[in-house]
Design a protein around this nucleic acid. Sequence first.
DNA 1: TGACGACATGTCGATCGTCTACTTATGATG
DNA 2: CATCATAAGTAGACGATCGACATGTCGTCA
Lengths: 113, 113
Amino acid sequence: MREPTYFVLAALLAGPLHGYAIIKRAEEMSGGRVRLATGTLYTALDRLTAEGHIRLVSEEMVAGRIRRSYGLTDAGSAALRAEAQRMAEAARLVTGDETVPRPSRLDRKARTA
Amino acid sequence: MREPTYFVLAALLAGPLHGYAIIKRAEEMSGGRVRLATGTLYTALDRLTAEGHIRLVSEEMVAGRIRRSYGLTDAGSAALRAEAQRMAEAARLVTGDETVPRPSRLDRKARTA
DNA sequence: TGACGACATGTCGATCGTCTACTTATGATG
DNA sequence: CATCATAAGTAGACGATCGACATGTCGTCA
């Protein structure tokens, strides 16, 4: 899964959104870093729908135009979490495990790799 | 940066390696998950060299054949770490910050893991 | 009033990294 | 003698992304 696709799914974690809102949410979630191109977004929505990762949850008419909202399916949610897991592991190979500074006791978990 | 490219760089973290060894190391680092196709690897080596992320560090003759070893440049090392950082952050959006399992009130008894 | 930016959906062609499959070649294992 | 691991590489196809374009409304600002 590529980054734009990942952020499309991640944007839907808190609930369904329509296309343009997904672009905004992804940008917001990434601190402005990820800017989904419309070409990327709308083709991704079709693809993810076909794959069963998201589904169309509503079609409202707003200002004479259709607004389609999409939500995560269970499969999509699972795929997203699996991907997050893979990324976290891959990142750890480089960052060396010190991702979150914990204010707890020193409980070193025998890491002899 | 895509996953195969990321793992090419990550494989070189501990020191220079030649092409085939990079494939093996990436597979090992990822627990067998990432298998770099030769077509991916050798084109990636050319690209990363052109980008200044890796550089050719030696050319030995082994069994009548050239063996080229590549090592990370400072730029490559920095790019790799930046990418790991991005991935960790992106993963955290989904995993919810619990990168390291914290002992919560609910599982106090299973503390030692 | 007219220009502009935000909102909103969508298509098209190009690009780029990856993948599959193929080629070439040696040394070891059976 | 075949096959596998090692080792480097190319060619063509594929798929996701990207930039640009198309179309239209609404609100704001000069």
